[in-house]
Structure formats: C-alpha cells, structure tokens
Design a protein around this nucleic acid. Structure first.
Lengths: 117, 117
DNA sequence: GGTTTTTATCGTAAAATTACGATATAGAAG
DNA sequence: CTTCTATATCGTAATTTTACGATAAAAACC
C-alpha cells in the first residue's frame, strides 16, 4: 500500500483513501460481502462464510481487507466477531465519487468530431 | 469476467457493470489515468505514456481495461488514438454508487452497544 | 480445569494481474 | 512506394492476489 509508483504521490489524502476503497471493492467477493452486510443490516461473521461458500480463512482475509479500507467495522462479540458496514466509510465513498473528476465532460454529451471526443 | 463464482449470478445487470467498473478503477495506475484524462478534458494517448512513465504496451493494456469497463472512449485520430472519459460511463458509476446499499446504516450513526454495530 | 465454538493468522500453492520487449498494424508524410 | 509515427497485440517474466488447510487465540460452556 506504499510502494505504489511515483504516480500516487501526487494524490491528495482523500484520493488515496478513495483509491484504496476502490481497490478493496474491485474484488467481486468483497463487493458481494458488502451487499450482504448491508442487507442484513445487523452484523454477521461466520454467516458470511456460509454465504460465500469459501473457506473460513479466505473470508476472514477478505474481511480484513474491507476493514483496513475503512468500509466495514468489526466488533468482538463473545467468541465471534460482528461486522457491519461503516457508515462513515460508505458516506466518504459516496461523497468522493459524487464529486470525482469535476472537470470531466463539460462539453455537450458527445458531438464534436474534431478534437475527437 | 464470467468465471466469477456463483455469487455473481445473483447480481443485477447494473450491479455486474458496477462491479466491473470498480475492478477497473481498483488499480492505482488506472485510477490515476482517469484523473489525468478528466483534467486534460481533451483526449490524449501517448501523452499518458509519458505521464505514467510506464512502457507503452503496459499503458495500452490499461487503456483497454478502462475502455472495456465503459469508463473511457477511444477514437482513432490519424495514426494515434484519442481517449476521453466516457460521460455515460461516469454518470452511470456516480448514479450507482449514490444509490448503493440503500439498506445500510439506517440506525443512528453509531450508538447501539448490544447487537454490536 | 478441559472442551467446544468462533475467528484470526501463518505458510503455501494456484491463479490472476501487471509490466516489459518485440512484433504487427494503420495512417501520415516524404 | 518507402519511411516515420503512434498504437495495439503477443508472448512471457515477475509480482500480486486469492484460496486453502493447519494452527493459534479468546471466550463461552460443561
């Protein structure tokens, strides 16, 4: 997460966090886990293992990635761990995407033939 | 893009497209290319190669991924190819994220101690 | 105490992604 | 027609990611 090309150094703090979130969500299993967590509202844990039909260690790994990206939060509940979508994280993601690439596509939908796009 | 677990089969068409976009954007180089394209507004091409300081073939590969995800559009302009952010694609992405996980975090920001989150 | 349950971590094999050079393609320019 | 320029594609090496089983850790339960 820190040997990511000189390119990344020109990014704002928010952009770096956004990129990390997108990377975490870029995996279809994790994408699906997010949906599942949002649906159940309440936190889950080994439930996700059954849901994904992947090995427990694999799921635990995916949950770690999502947690480190700030997309979910886990709380130890007895012997188990209870996860839920991070309201703050999701809010951040939505806000960032909403205002992402503001300079883009200012000209009309798609007319100009010269200057290509 | 089609051997993606049984999990993916329960997804809507829009969700599949969204997941594909997130996967494309999950790479920091491609994330950065999108920003660069948006900044320049006008389309570019070998310019991106200089910008990223990666091999031409590598950049071409990344552009292909972005193009296939519907995030950019390329138009052959003489011997070169001119790229720009896809207005439709970006609009789709923003719309989908905005309404993503609607069932999430309905309870207050973060109070409940029981039932974990 | 010991046992059971649930999860995290470790080590590793398999698979996918990324990056590169070399080559092929297409159009512009002479 | 030949040359030059700009990209795309191919084949492949290096890296990263993903998935698994085995093991460790922590709490509930007997």
């Amino acid at each position: 997460m820190s040997k990511d090309l000189p390119l990344i150094h020109e990014l704002s703090r928010d952009d770096i966090r956004l990129a990390a979130m997108l990377k975490a969500l870029g995996n279809p299993v994790r994408f699906r886990i997010m949906q599942h967590l949002a649906d159940r509202q309440m936190c889950i844990t080994g439930d996700i293992v059954a849901f994904t039909s992947l090995a427990q260690s694999t799921v635990s790994q995916h949950l770690k990635v999502l947690r480190e990206a700030g997309l979910i939060e886990g709380e130890i509940e007895g012997p188990a761990t209870c996860y839920c979508v991070s309201a703050e994280g999701l809010q951040f993601l939505k806000g960032q995407i909403e205002s992402w690439l503001p300079n883009c596509c200012q000209s009309e939908p798609r007319i100009a033939k010269s200057n290509c796009c």
